[in-house]
Design a protein around this nucleic acid. Structure first.
Length: 508
RNA sequence: GGCGCCAUCGUCUAGUGGUUAGGACGCCGGCCUCUCAAGCCGGUAACACGGGUUCGAUCCCCGUUGGCGCUACCA
């Protein structure tokens, strides 16, 4: 009873022009991971709210108990936090207009269904799915322009009650009135829909549970949502929801429909089609800053030629009216570029800290390095400079610094160490460096260049075999700095090892 | 099929009733250079088509085509 009373309280006048702050929600269902499409919707909602100093509400639409899982829920919450889209009301923190899990709101809907039934805005429909199928297939060749024929709409309340008493199962349908619905979409502008195109939708299933289009209206009203921003795949639901809201005596929120996001294959991003989960980007070494920046630019632009935006800058600049009406394709290559740009902009200590989990996962360092290790790591990261496209790239760039032994790249070995003079070059360099007065980059450079002069070749001829010897690869940060940081002992040992290896490979 | 949304370089986009149609990613070339990146310089590439309106349309209108979405007792 208490629940019903609370449930019956809707907000008849929202007051578009009142001083009350904007209340915006994102309502994911935990039936899959958050992907770039959903995350962009969340981001735009969040930005809309924050730009106006309003509140961002997270509501979990977990009524599909079969497909909803705790794992998906956790991932979604974690992704929001990681992206910086903190919510003002919702899971974990609650709020005054909860519960924020739809599954916990199950008892609030029945009184509203009853209200519509009592007032004649809805009616019971006793047509079975089989009958419906039958009539549907007879109405049109392909059965695709079928609309519910309102067979049960004409039933009087007495007839309806009688059938119900007989125990016949029924659904509740919303009675679409004559006329047109128009609304001003925040993204699309004016939208008008003739009710001829709508049919009497089911708002309560035969088991009594309410359907999506009904639940959303009640939830949004009870949570005092003022603005709904969602994918344009919901556009056709909007007039139905507006009509239901009005029948319930509450003012519908403002709506904004975002164009869909395609994958590079021009197919709409979706869970079913295996869109990349946000958590996957995190694991692959993308920065949340880059992802947010990239997603914001997917369908929105500030009008100037600025392309880098922090979350704070986005909050300040975001204008939903400037969102494009055209669907946009997600370009992974541009994301990579943007990620590299954001990594470059990270101050060294920060960049170093962010790289730690990736090195730890590769077993190259401890998850909790001490100050000395961190200082060394910082020198390595500094040397690698802006070669990282993702944080995960740190492993391939830094492993030869951190691992005890060099892992040789076969192609590098084939290409460089098999050259006939590589053994002698490596031995000579080893000899020269073992007598170096110090192991500063300048000293190493000087000695290396002199050796190259003795051989009568360019420095590159000396450096390349030595690079492979010391790093196992043909590419690395600056050679002299790399050797210096690695230290004389390791360098000499590796040169020696490689020269022996090369000796076994050189056929002449 | 019906209804709806959309249409500028391959991709993300800016833009105006008169512009050499701008930027970014990618790609190509060059510079730098010990390799690879980064950086810098240069290049490649677009107003879907057809009718109107207009002195003049990429821009406004209509149509065509194309892409996409919706069309459930899913959300």
């Amino acid at each position: 009873m208490g629940l019903s009373l609370r449930g019956l309280f809707l907000h008849p006048v929202r007051g578009r022009f009142s001083m009350s702050q904007m209340r915006v929600r994102f309502a994911p269902s935990p039936t899959g991971y958050l992907h770039a499409g959903g995350a962009r919707t969340a981001l735009f909602n969040w930005l809309l709210a924050k730009h106006s100093g309003g509140r961002f509400i997270l509501r979990i639409e977990d009524t599909d108990r079969k497909r909803s899982t705790a794992e998906f829920l956790d991932a979604i919450l974690e992704d929001h936090k990681w992206l910086g889209l903190v919510w003002d009301e919702g899971p974990e923190i609650g709020g005054t207009l909860g519960p924020y899990y739809q599954s916990e709101r199950a008892d609030t809907y029945a009184p509203f269904i009853q209200k519509l039934l009592d007032e004649g805005s809805a009616y019971r429909c006793f047509c079975s799915p089989e009958e419906l199928d039958d009539r549907r297939s007879r109405t049109s060749q392909n059965g695709r322009d079928w609309k519910y024929d309102r067979k049960c709409a004409a039933l009087t309340k007495e007839q309806s009650a009688e059938r119900k008493a007989e125990g016949r199962s029924s659904v509740v349908r919303f009675r679409i009135p004559d006329g047109k619905t128009r609304f001003e979409d925040m993204v699309l502008g004016p939208v008008e829909v003739d009710h001829q195109e709508l049919d009497d939708l089911v708002i309560a299933r035969s088991d009594g549970t309410p359907t999506y289009n009904f639940v959303v209206v009640v939830d949004d009203s009870q949570m005092r949502i003022t603005h709904v921003v969602r994918g344009s795949d919901h556009l056709s639901n909007t007039p139905k929801q507006i009509l239901i809201a009005r029948a319930l005596g509450t003012e519908p929120p403002e709506f904004g429909h975002l164009p869909l996001v395609f994958g590079p294959d021009k197919q709409v991003l979706s869970k079913r089609r295996g869109a990349v989960a946000i958590g996957e980007y995190r694991r692959r070494g993308y920065l949340p800053e880059a992802l947010v920046n990239y997603m914001a630019l997917l369908g929105w632009s500030c009008g100037r030629e600025q392309e880098f935006f922090s979350l704070d800058e986005l909050v300040a600049e975001f204008d939903i009216a400037k969102v494009s009406r055209k669907a946009a394709a997600f370009d992974p290559e541009k994301l990579v570029w943007m990620n590299a740009q954001w990594i470059k902009r990270l101050p060294l200590p920060e960049r170093t800290a962010r790289v730690v989990p990736f090195l730890a996962a590769a077993g190259l360092i401890s998850n909790t390095p001490d100050d000395r290790q961190l200082a060394e790591l910082e020198r390595i990261v500094s040397l690698i400079d802006d070669r990282l496209k993702t944080l995960a790239d740190i492993v391939e760039h830094a492993s030869f610094f951190l691992a005890d032994n060099v892992t040789f790249d076969n192609i590098a070995v084939d290409k460089v160490l098999t050259k006939s003079d590589s053994v002698d070059i490596l031995n000579d360099l080893c000899g020269v460096l073992s007598h170096a007065p110090d192991f500063e980059p300048a000293t190493i450079e000087d000695l290396t260049r002199k050796l190259a002069a003795v051989w009568g070749v360019g420095v590159g001829k000396v450096i390349q075999p030595a690079r492979v010897a010391v790093t196992g690869r043909t590419v690395s940060p600056g050679f002299f700095e790399t050797l210096s940081l690695l230290g004389r002992d390791k360098v000499l040992a590796r040169l020696k090892f490689a020269s022996e290896l090369a000796a076994t490979l050189t056929t002449e």
